[in-house]
Design a protein around this nucleic acid. Structure first.
Lengths: 343, 343
DNA sequence: ATTAGCACTCAAGTCACTCGAGTGCTAACA
DNA sequence: TGTTAGCACTCGAGTGACTTGAGTGCTAAT
């Protein structure tokens, strides 16, 4: 479809534009020497590439910039599978170094990623779907207040402090917790709701007086629905990009970044390898002129999280892809070690 | 010092400018009718007010805007102590409604505040200085991993997952936790470090083999230094303000907002009533052209937190001050109830 | 097939000009 | 003596003409 020379031109233009953010002219390309033809020849090829939809002009006599299709082609065919980025080793050593806990490791990875790229990084914590309840606990703080703690088999801890209504007496509370523990231990978090309703409710009826009140109350305390945790870093990096000179754009971006649900939604669907979504390929309105790159990482077989970067469509795809690729593998590797072995 | 009429003019100009963000001219004031004098008279007064430093021009033939000194005067003397803002009742009812835990209440207050004002709200959680340890716990997840949980008497929960080194055997770990609990229960968090070092270390030496390793390890796990928690809402509200049409300003603002330590530092010092800091009165470079309003709230006698709002110097001081005043009282009230009584 | 040459386009910058909101000052007025 | 009308002046903001330069598209020569 595309000639060797056209490919080369597309590549040079994209590389150049990614670096400088200025439209690239035929003369500039010719002078650069990578392509041993005159400006006129290159001009002709550029016209063809534009006709095919790979390039665009910002105005009728400007140089060319890659279209979204152009970026797509560039990403799919024109970037050599770079050697693993050496910076990944930083994470590797952090993880293997030892004394960090899981959340810290993830947070640090996000920070490193945003610092290395100058884009905004988002890491989605592993889905807790398959996580099972390890233990429930209630610690009484005063006659009227207590804190409920829920611990999963992955070491995730949720807690919630609550008032003990005068209608529930302390010994009943203790009984209930015992029942709950007995019944719910080992139950996947995602099914707690159900089992709570079906089995526990029945049982509790037998033991506890003033059952109705207590039931609703306890359910509220012990059934969680936090899906996943988000680690975001470098939100303001995006402001360094020249394409963000417009306050309106900034506003839509930051407004979106405040909506956790939307972000989770955005990252959720990619579980198979690295995935680049360019501009309008994104379904979410707020990032239709940005690019999103996601890569999965694995903690255990059914605990999968997502690493992501958001930046302008004019993104350093080459660097970013190899970086994410490396980080994804490294996190999977090292987190596996972290959860299995001693150091 | 200032005549009645000058005060009135300063007030009208400030009110008007706060509302419209446009410099206010003499003719506009005169036409408005609040001041029964001609434009010329008002012009003379304005010149005087400018000479005294309360007003400024944006250019030699523009209308006037309040200077920082002008705002200062306005805040200190010209805004009537507004009746309690009715919106405060929303918080009141939320808190009294019942089923929310402390963190949620604070988070919701922050959100409400930023929504009502269109500025950025920050709430500093109560200082944990005087908080005492209620209980330590270790839950084993697998032979090599465990999670440490620390609960304070205020219901604050900290947790940290860690690998159990093969040099420590499980029964030792249990012993240690018992010792720690025995010794540290009731100790203020702030002194844990010390006591851990002085008393616990000694004791442990007697009971635990391979003491040296374990000590450093446990200390790392159980001694926390998180000072306070930040609840921020409406970061992107600031983008709606016309004074933020400059990407540079936006960048400095957001960069500052990413630095938690700096923010904490910024809010920490105000424990006595509401406090308004205008523009250059702020010591922190990044908000030298913004205003900061802080108000304390009290959970118990020695648990004091801070509510704050950041916005342009052209801030709706009247509204904001009455709102913060009300919220501060309401939070103190209701949180007191929350911690003491049943509903 | 490639290239040199040339007319053409357009963004961006500069300059001169106008408009209008607003000021400062002076002189007249109550 | 305090107030006001009047008027010249200032300056930002907007407009339109003009220039410059980077870049294109097309044609004709190689």
């Amino acid at each position: 479809m595309l000639t060797e020379r056209q490919l080369l031109i597309l590549q040079v233009i994209t590389d150049e534009f990614i670096e400088t953010a200025h439209p690239v002219g035929s003369r500039a390309i010719s002078k650069k020497g990578t392509i041993p033809y005159s400006a006129a020849t290159i001009r002709n090829e550029m016209a063809d590439l534009e006709e095919m939809g790979f390039l665009e002009k910002t105005h009728s006599s400007s140089g060319r910039i890659p279209s979204e299709l152009g970026y797509r082609y560039y990403v799919d065919h024109l970037i050599a599978p770079n050697p693993l980025h050496k910076e990944v080793n930083i994470i590797k050593s952090i993880i293997e170094d030892g004394f960090y806990e899981f959340e810290q490791i993830v947070q640090m990875s996000a920070e490193l990623l945003s610092e290395l790229t100058n884009y905004t990084s988002i890491i989605l914590g592993p889905e807790l779907m398959e996580t099972k309840l390890k233990q429930l606990q209630i610690v009484t703080l005063s006659p009227q207040t207590a804190v409920a703690i829920l611990i999963t088999d992955t070491g995730h801890v949720e807690h919630r402090s609550f008032k003990v209504p005068s209608t529930i007496n302390p010994s009943d509370l203790e009984k209930m917790v015992n029942i709950l523990n007995e019944r719910l231990k080992g139950v996947p978090i995602i099914h707690m709701d159900e089992i709570f309703h079906n089995e526990v409710a029945q049982l509790m009826k037998l033991y506890i007086r003033d059952y109705d009140n207590s039931y609703a109350y306890l359910k509220d305390i012990f059934v969680y629905d936090h899906p996943v945790k988000l680690y975001i870093s470098g939100k303001s990096n995006i402001l360094m990009q020249p394409e963000f000179n417009d306050v309106g754009k900034i506003r839509t971006f930051f407004t979106m970044m405040e909506d956790e649900d939307e972000i989770i939604n955005l990252l959720k669907n990619s579980h198979h390898g690295i995935k680049v979504t360019i501009g309008n390929e994104n379904k979410v309105e707020a990032i239709k002129d940005l690019s999103l790159i996601t890569a999965p990482y694995q903690l255990t077989n059914d605990q999968i999280g997502t690493i992501a970067l958001i930046g302008p469509t004019r993104m350093e795809y080459r660097k970013v892809i190899s970086l994410l690729n490396g980080l994804s593998k490294e996190m999977t590797n090292a987190l596996y070690k972290w959860s299995q072995y001693d150091e």
